[in-house]
Design a protein around this nucleic acid. Sequence first.
DNA 1: GGTAGTACTTACTTACGAGTAGAATCTACC
DNA 2: GGTAGATTCTACTCGTAAGTAAGTACTACC
Lengths: 239, 239
Amino acid sequence: MGSDGKSRAAALGAEDASLVSPWPVRKATQRNRDLKREAVIRAAARAFNARGYHNTSIDEIAAALNVTKPTIYYYVANKEQLLLECILTGLERVLEPFRRPREAGVTARGHLNDMMRHYAEAIASEYGWCMVRAEDLGLEPASLQHIKRLKSEIDQGIRRLLEEGIRDGSIEVQDLKMTSFALAGALNWIAHWYRENQSMTPGEIAEAFVRIFNLGLAPRAAQDRPRSRRSRARKEPIP
Amino acid sequence: MGSDGKSRAAALGAEDASLVSPWPVRKATQRNRDLKREAVIRAAARAFNARGYHNTSIDEIAAALNVTKPTIYYYVANKEQLLLECILTGLERVLEPFRRPREAGVTARGHLNDMMRHYAEAIASEYGWCMVRAEDLGLEPASLQHIKRLKSEIDQGIRRLLEEGIRDGSIEVQDLKMTSFALAGALNWIAHWYRENQSMTPGEIAEAFVRIFNLGLAPRAAQDRPRSRRSRARKEPIP
DNA sequence: GGTAGTACTTACTTACGAGTAGAATCTACC
DNA sequence: GGTAGATTCTACTCGTAAGTAAGTACTACC
């Protein structure tokens, strides 16, 4: 609470002009507020990232921003919401490539590989850890449901790409569900080791993963394996 | 504390006979104690599994065993140790196949696949969740170090198998580190979805993962893909 | 330069849960 | 059947951290 008294009034006013407040909304101030709110969320993400949700006090987050605890509560209802926002931000980032339509001339496998690159970037961000590691158990049922809906959207997105790949001949898998889980698992897990091991950029990690998941570990027949770097110039390297 | 006054005395006695306590150790009681201690750990694992470490109170664990909180502390020094034991139990289970030598006539890839099956079983157990999901951030440095050592042993074990596979020709990968991370990630992640989705046995999950990681998603040349079930009779199916 | 609302602070309350002291009971063994 | 030690209980302490009440300073705008 304590964050939206006026905006709700404005929303109502949009429906019934007689309810419009005679006091104008202060635009500049509002923007500033959003910026600060975002900074609070980011700081929380970083703190959770470093010490874990339950080991992080609001006081610590406040201190990192050179303010005091009540200031945090001025921007956010409670600690749980802080976590929720971090998780949702992360999930939304991951979802982005699933929501945009495939570009012409790209196979489903190509799109899937793009998705993996995007996914790796998102997971390596501040919000990746929250999204993946935070114990969402213990969140309110409503929040939990929201999270689940987005996670399911990701899963369904992966499966859809796999199905399309099977149809267009660019992918060959046995079990959609397990393949989706294996992909998501490998990608999510990046959050666990990336903090301590930043020797590679998210892009390089993604590239390695694309290769691993495309080719598998068993040796391929020689003609399927372009040895030279140059052969990667093909649209989507069969490697 | 409050758990090992006598066992330490016994250990000292083993070194110097003059220090042997005139009171005999009660064998039957001791066995019973170990059993109960184990039950405490298991109950804790299940509770952490269901509600998360920080959302589980010692009182809840005690209640699940029809005892009261101090009883728990009679078997275990503190809550952190409870978590630590769960994690270590899980890790030890995963480590087992890395510690036993390869059977004759099995390729490194075969061994790796075995490892995956074992890994999946371990992760699907009560302890899997603790091992994977528990925020180990916030544990004492000594405990943390212990955990890290075991995790690193797993990672090194995977890489060793990959290297051996490259040497014996059964495996072909570009990046050992990334491949190890991708494998471990996919397997660890099982802990996240298995609780809510037990439609498959750990064995079936492992089989699917073996297939995915061996073959990859890109279509293989026709002759590499045995379509019939019978061709799996080969030692390690190229599938 | 006065005022309405915005932004932030000091100084609390409160609840919860880890951990413990010390007494009560139970059991193996003489 | 008495007793030492093992096991469990009742009844606490105590720290921590979430959250809040109520006020102060700041700023945009007339």
